[in-house]
């Protein structure tokens, strides 16, 4: 089973303070910690587990600048065999559609049985690349996958629906599956493992090598053009309680008491 996993190098923003930069079209990246997109982490782990069970190879692919090498190294340390980085200054401003086109060019001549992507990315959250890539390759897809069984050229997968419900669908291989968090428990990657992965080669391909033209990538090749970023308007703001932890606790306790909750 040869598996390609598309990964993205993203800033960790769940607990970070986000500032919009002076262009108003993106956020200030300085000071943010970048790592593999959380969903992709599960996708890589799932691919490596399948390889360990059935044999084959795992190749990770990303579209990004040199900074993304650390994410690829992490994947190699986790058990991926090869890493490819698609990089070109002209890729700047690409939306999910353009990214899918770039990935398509790199992937179409590679041997594979399965392609994994994360179900979405933690930064822009479009959840588009996987199924668009499938369409460009002319193969089936299933999104938000929480369980995979492979047999006789078919992937039988559980898709996450709403409210705790799941559905089982079967897709013929080769196929694109977008992986939902919680499908597995990604293994711990040791510093030693990452050091070892430092020696592995990362293949870098640019626009001409991929046979792409300028109007297929970047803003010109995209569906979506960002006009401006802004802080969401606050419809309702909590009343903030301050003081020492003891004082705050006392205030909360008073509120609960007044409402008959204690």
């Amino acid at each position: 089973m040869d598996i390609l996993v598309c990964v993205k190098h993203v800033p960790e923003t769940a607990e970070a303070d986000i500032k919009i930069d002076s262009t108003g079209k993106t956020i200030e990246k300085a000071g943010l910690v970048f790592d593999i997109n959380e969903w992709d982490d599960y996708a890589v782990e799932e691919a490596v587990r399948i390889k360990e069970k059935l044999g084959g190879t795992v190749t990770v692919i990303t579209v990004g600048s040199e900074d993304a090498n650390s994410t690829l190294r992490k994947c190699l340390a986790r058990g991926a065999d090869k890493a490819i980085r698609l990089s070109d200054p002209k890729f700047e401003g690409s939306d999910s559609y353009a990214i899918a086109k770039i990935l398509h060019k790199a992937i179409k001549d590679l041997p594979f049985d399965l392609i994994f992507t994360g179900a979405q990315a933690g930064d822009d959250g479009y959840a588009m690349v996987g199924p668009i890539l499938a369409q460009l390759l002319g193969i089936p897809h299933a999104t938000m996958v929480k369980k995979i069984e492979l047999k006789n050229g078919v992937a039988r997968v559980n898709r996450e629906l709403e409210g705790g419900l799941e559905e089982i669908v079967e897709v013929k291989l080769p196929a694109v599956l977008t992986i939902q968090t919680g499908i597995n428990e990604p293994r711990y990657v040791s510093i030693m493992g990452i050091r070892k992965a430092m020696k592995k080669e990362i293949k870098v391909l640019g626009m001409t090598e991929l046979g792409l033209s300028e109007n297929e990538v970047g803003e010109a090749g995209s569906w979506i053009k960002i006009e401006k970023l802004y802080v969401p308007p606050v419809e309702k703001q909590a009343e903030f309680l301050d003081g020492t932890p003891e004082e705050i606790a006392a205030k909360i306790a008073e509120i609960l008491k007044a409402r008959g909750l204690v």
């Binding site: 999910s96 199924p131 999104t143 569906w223």
Partner: peptide
């Protein structure tokens, strides 16, 4: 939704009509 996320992107790509999600 789980339904639209499975459908819209490939539909848009097949028709080459612009899509914005979520």
């Amino acid at each position: 939704t789980s339904f639209g996320m499975d459908l819209a992107p490939s539909l848009a790509a097949s028709l080459n009509i612009p899509l914005a999600t979520d």
